[in-house]
């Protein structure tokens, strides 16, 4: 077990004993990871913030069920991703159009340089536009693979499914995204492909 893992475990134990300061440390440590997952899944900063809050709240209330043999981050992300998938399914049931107006993507105060921000912002938006066209399960697999660099096995563990199901989702998702990219012709956003396999 790494030093970080043992520190996290200490915080988890303290939080289980009612120490809210310890849980606040966990929030500080994992808030970016959880928020990014929610944002990539839900495509809306306000909804992502709400989902991240809900994920942490559920984690706190179910902390006693956390298996210390697993990574806390993986457990937390599994709560967040499953919550986002449910939320997307409910959203679909409410017959919300996928063509609703673009969400609030306002730049933050702590952004570095305007030009970098614009490029990053445009790329982020292009990716979000593509991602939102994927089914929730596929989207979750893609986000966990590309933003968190999880293996097929780890993603399967997080999404409570099999490794082959994750492979299949990822492959199909990439194929769907390639088709969408062809249709939208957003190749200008991609990095020049210089390397061979």
């Amino acid at each position: 077990m790494s030093t970080i893992d043992s520190v996290v475990l200490e915080w988890v134990k303290a939080a289980l004993n009612g120490d809210q300061d310890a849980f606040a440390e966990l929030v500080y440590m994992f808030q970016d990871a959880v928020y990014n997952l929610c944002y990539r899944m839900l495509y809306d900063s306000v909804e992502a913030e709400d989902a991240a809050q809900e994920a942490f709240l559920r984690a706190y209330l179910n902390l006693a069920r956390y298996d210390t043999a697993r990574s806390f981050k993986t457990w937390l992300l599994s709560i967040a991703s499953n919550y986002c998938i449910d939320r997307l399914r409910r959203r679909r049931m409410k017959w919300l159009s996928i063509d609703d107006p673009l969400p609030n993507l306002a730049l933050r105060e702590d952004t570095p340089e305007p030009e970098d921000v614009t490029i990053s912002h445009e790329r982020s938006r292009a990716i979000q536009d593509l991602l939102r066209q994927l089914p929730p399960d596929y989207r979750a697999a893609v986000v966990l693979r590309y933003w968190y660099d999880y293996s097929y096995v780890e993603i399967a563990d997080i999404l409570d499914t099999t490794e082959s199901a994750i492979k299949s989702r990822l492959f199909r998702a990439r194929q769907m995204l390639a088709d969408k990219m062809d249709a939208k012709d957003i190749s200008g956003m991609t990095i020049p492909l210089l390397e061979n396999i």
Binding site: N36, A52, S124, L130, L177, S187, T190, I191
Partner: peptide, 17 residues
């Protein structure tokens, strides 16, 4: 497929508010 892969790999991590 590789274009998709590269695009996704280049995606920035959104920081929490």
């Amino acid at each position: 497929l590789r274009r998709v892969d590269r695009l996704l790999r280049s995606a920035p991590m959104e920081r929490a508010p």
